[in-house]
Write a protein that binds this DNA or RNA. Structure first.
Length: 428
RNA sequence: GCCCUUGUAGUAUAGCCCGGUCUAGAAUUCGGCCCUGUCACGGCUGAGACGCGGGUUCAAAUCCCGCCGAGGGCGCCA
């Protein structure tokens, strides 16, 4: 079976009139009009109209929508509304037949519900709206890498199978590792900090796992996190890095992904920068003026963040959280040790990222572990690295899936994840 | 863990509140016939559905209960 093609569809154009071409793709639409027929064929680069006439009508035998075809034909001018040229077919080969009925309608005229689409996710990629989301996601990843590499960050890969779950916080998935108890990593936190010893500025983009039975549009059991850690940077420095990453993502996609925005039906708007910075203490005052009383040191619940989000509908940093709300590795402020050098990046009520300056002194770390009822001996593998010349460092982790929902203005992370994992969905 | 909503052809829906008019309607998809410029092609025609189990009733898609599935919210979330 010859599957070669001379052109991608986007490489075809009206100046090639009279030229013989071979291309391939899947049949989007098929319209028979007596002794002539039109079909539209799509590959990943675009869509093209194919015309079949007279004696050639037999070429259409056995042809149906969504089947993969190889078209041999000649470019000619077209009277079509949406195409300024078309291909007059001399041969149509069906390389793979699509069965009927298909579980969803990939043309997207009738939008299938999310459950059906996730159950048939591969086919959903023929829906141009869905495909555009993942083309954008690819662009976003490229943009983030570009921004970070320009700033001397080195991409790393830390283990996802880890041996210790003693860090507290979110529940972890446990698994059997040749007879030992192991866990799926919920964050690269400790490893990325260690890497600042020799690589100084590192980042990782990877899946992490949390065994929380959350049923919301913003939580998944498996999610993609963008993490950075940088030596000799304070928390405000890594906030600047984060801000430029976000702005670059919006700029790059807004300017270079016009077709995708059109398919999705959403115009990406570049946020103005610098992002507003609100301290935790200011946030309490703002909430107080809305008659929401919160004691210093209390965590902000979702409902509080929703109220704050109404006052700050776009991107803003929530900074200087109380130490007691932060994990053991967070560094306190010099002028007020009850406050931390920490921040969250919010988009309205939605938390996109959180980070801060880390402790780099091993003795301080040991003290903090004990204060938080954690056992320093179970962190010895980590703590020993702090005796080897650990530079002062800061970093953050950002939920990529959440950023994607903000970018395209939707409210469910399942739309931007190929095969989402939540407490009720393990397949496909 | 708690709460709310919801299951009708392949898809997406009307009907349900207020039981009978439902032999379950329209769209799209699919089959057949007609059609040489369609572009959501058109015309004629045909096929295809009430999640499962129980109950109430003369009568259940419609009301009640259980199960199963789905969607969403709260909480959880170094």
């Amino acid at each position: 079976m010859d599957i070669s093609r001379t052109h991608l569809i986007e490489e075809l154009n009206s100046s090639m009139e009279g030229k013989d071409v071979i291309f391939g793709g899947w049949v989007v639409d098929l319209r028979k009009l007596g002794k002539m027929a039109f079909l539209t064929v799509r590959d990943v680069t675009g869509m093209c109209q194919v015309i079949v006439k007279g004696d050639s009508m037999s070429l259409l035998e056995g042809l149906n929508r969504q089947s993969v075809v190889r078209i041999l034909g000649k470019i000619q001018s077209s009277k079509a509304k949406d195409f300024d040229f078309e291909v007059s077919a001399t041969e149509i080969q069906v390389l793979a037949k699509a069965e009927y009925p298909l579980p969803i309608d990939p043309i997207g005229r009738l939008e299938s519900d999310i459950d059906n689409r996730l159950n048939s996710r591969a086919l959903d990629m023929r829906n141009q709206k869905t495909a555009s989301i993942f083309k954008l996601r690819s662009k976003v990843l490229a943009s983030i890498r570009e921004t970070l590499i320009k700033r001397k960050f080195i991409e790393i890969n830390t283990p996802k199978i880890i041996g210790s779950a003693s860090e507290g916080g979110a529940d972890l998935f446990g698994l059997d590792y040749f007879g030992q108890k192991a866990y799926l990593a919920q964050s690269p936190q400790l490893y990325k900090e260690q890497m600042t010893i020799g690589l100084e500025r590192v980042f990782e983009i990877s899946s992490f796992y949390r065994a929380e039975k959350s049923h919301t549009g913003r939580h998944l059991s498996e999610f993609t996190s963008v993490d950075i850690e940088a030596a000799m940077m304070d928390y405000t420095d890594v906030m600047d890095v984060l801000e430029s990453i976000v702005v670059d993502v919006f700029k790059n996609t807004s300017e270079n992904c016009k077709i995708e925005q059109q398919e999705i039906g959403y115009e990406i708007k570049v946020p103005s920068s610098p992002f507003e910075r609100v301290t935790y203490t200011q946030a309490l005052e703002e909430l107080s003026s809305m008659d929401i009383k919160i004691e210093f040191g209390e965590d902000l619940q979702d409902s509080h963040l929703r109220s704050l989000g109404e006052k700050h509908p776009g991107f803003f940093f929530l900074t200087d959280w109380p130490m007691k709300l932060k994990p053991f590795y967070i560094h306190e402020k010099d002028d007020d040790p009850t406050l931390s050098r920490s921040f969250d990046l919010q988009y309205g009520y939605l938390e996109l990222s959180s980070g801060g300056r880390r402790l780099h002194d091993p003795e301080q770390l040991r003290t903090r572990l004990k204060e938080q009822d954690l056992d320093p001996t179970s962190f010895e593998e980590h703590l020993k690295t702090f005796g080897w010349g650990m530079p002062p460092h800061s970093g953050w982790g950002m939920g990529l899936d959440r950023l994607m929902t903000v970018l395209i203005g939707i409210d469910n992370v399942r739309e931007v994840v190929l095969y989402p994992r939540d407490p009720d969905r393990l397949k496909p």
